[in-house]
């Protein structure tokens, strides 16, 4: 049963990921990305990581992709051909990445190639509590660093957006 779900989610994720870059209409690409996010969330659910699944949808599908769509909608699709001539570069990078993945897969063909068995959700604290515990004890330092980077990005965005107004005041 688990395997059926895994193969379904994996197949849809792979297909829609290709569609994101293969489709000509950027709105369709965004929709393919939406379907992919949902199936990644589904994969998390099969691993009993419900919290991650919900956060995946809230953050990626609910916020980031909406902003993508926001920008894509303002483009005129018929005149937007700038990004359609990337095949040589993209092909080269794709072949390189594929080679790396295949090499890694060949090297790691050991006994532990079976996926990790998720903990029984019926016992112990829930998924959310466990993530909280791990994030604020074991991984406290990386967490703080990530927060700092995000803060820097936010301040940077504010400065970039405010620049024009200051210049106008000086003139």
């Amino acid at each position: 049963m688990d395997h059926i779900f895994f193969f379904y989610f994996a197949a849809v994720i792979a297909t829609t990921s290709v569609l994101v870059v293969a489709l000509r209409n950027p709105v369709y690409s965004a929709l393919a990305l939406l379907i992919m996010f949902f199936h990644v969330a589904g994969l998390y659910v099969t691993l009993h990581a419900e919290f991650l699944a919900a956060v995946q949808i809230v953050v990626y599908a609910g916020a980031i992709l909406v902003l993508y769509l926001f920008v894509v909608m303002l483009l005129s699709i018929k005149s937007e051909e700038r990004y359609h001539n990337q095949l040589p570069v993209a092909g080269l990078l794709g072949v390189m990445l594929c080679t790396e993945v295949i090499l890694l897969l060949i090297q790691s063909r050991t006994a532990s190639s079976a996926p990790a068995i998720p903990a029984d959700p019926a016992v112990g604290p829930g998924n959310t509590e466990m993530i909280g515990e791990a994030l604020y004890s074991t991984y406290l330092f990386p967490f703080e660093v990530a927060s700092l980077i995000l803060l820097v990005a936010m301040i940077g965005a504010i400065i970039l957006a405010k620049k024009d107004i200051n210049e106008r005041v000086q003139q």
């Binding site: 419900e50 699944a53 809230v58 599908a61 609910g62």
Partner: peptide, 14 residues
């Protein structure tokens, strides 16, 4: 489900 309120937030954003 044990993430009920997050589930609602997720689908509200969809």
């Amino acid at each position: 489900i044990n993430i009920g309120i997050l589930y609602i937030l997720a689908f509200a954003s969809i």
